[in-house]
């Protein structure tokens, strides 16, 4: 059974139609990349999947792990194993990263009928996961993303993903604004999480990220539709030729 099955998805924001019939199937263990120019609807897709209520799904069906996503609001989708790494992670002053993570981890455990982690177990889990992302201890004590550099915020997103162990990780332009060292750390973190059960959807502008996280499929998205699907070599093709030929096909 597919982990994610999107059929004829249409969505709009503030009355503007952005997604115009997306079809996408992701099986367990697969890594898919969606590439496309600015404004093609890539971030809209990730937000619709995560359950951002600013976006309105107007047509189509999304099945995630056998469940219709229409029946689940954002926090229920997260608990069911869907994770979105934000393009611009949100700063939350006054809530420590540790406290936030503990609430998130235990919310997922409660949903799965597992026992709540106590303070000691939680520290053990943190210790186990934090080394992968090279996160400094003081970032864990600090308020969520507050005063973090751009790279630290993105690393923190992947660290959260490692802690929450989702079934599907959606990375919304996680590579934007990262220097080559940070990109490598983030990619290593993602690669460490790859498994036959866990899938990823990488949303990106550039081919660079795909040198580090090698996808099984690459999709080109233009004007709210997937216009071409191929293997990892498609990304290289796009890098050389750009999106111009696609964008021209359906001008505004």
């Amino acid at each position: 059974m597919a982990l994610l099955d999107i059929k004829n998805l249409h969505a709009s924001v503030a009355g503007n139609d952005i997604l115009k019939g997306i079809n996408l199937t992701i099986n367990p263990g697969e890594v898919h990349a969606i590439m496309g120019p600015n404004g093609s609807g890539k971030s809209t897709l990730s937000n619709v999947l995560a359950g951002n209520e600013i976006y309105e799904k107007t047509e189509g069906e999304i099945l995630f792990d056998g469940k219709n996503l229409d029946d689940l609001v954002a926090h229920e989708r997260a608990r069911a194993g869907l994770f979105l790494a934000f393009q611009y992670p949100i700063e939350i002053p006054g809530i420590s990263n540790m406290y936030f993570l503990k609430a998130a981890v235990n919310a997922g455990r409660e949903y799965r009928g597992e026992e709540q982690l106590d303070a000691m177990d939680f520290i053990d889990l943190i210790e186990e996961k934090k080394n992968v992302m090279n996160l400094r201890d003081d970032l864990l004590e600090r308020a969520v993303n507050s005063g973090f550099s751009g790279g630290e915020k993105k690393r923190n997103e992947i660290f959260q993903m490692a802690m929450l162990e989702p079934k599907l990780g959606i990375l919304d332009e996680t590579d934007s604004g990262l220097d080559i060292d940070a990109l490598r750390i983030v990619s290593d973190g993602v690669n460490a999480l790859r498994s036959p059960e866990r899938s990823f959807l990488l949303i990106t502008h550039y081919q660079r990220l795909l040198d580090y996280i090698v996808p099984d499929f690459v999709h080109v998205m233009v004007h709210g539709k997937i216009v071409k699907t191929g293997g990892k070599e498609l990304a290289l093709e796009l890098e050389n030729e750009g999106y111009a030929s696609w964008v021209g096909e359906e001008g505004p």
């Binding site: 926090h75 997260a78 609430a103 919310a107 949903y111």
Partner: peptide, 18 residues
């Protein structure tokens, strides 16, 4: 609040936390 929700924290809990 949306960010907290995408991490599995329900809105009531999220509001209380914020």
């Amino acid at each position: 609040l949306y960010y907290l929700q995408t991490r599995g924290i329900d809105p009531a809990r999220g509001k209380a936390m914020l």
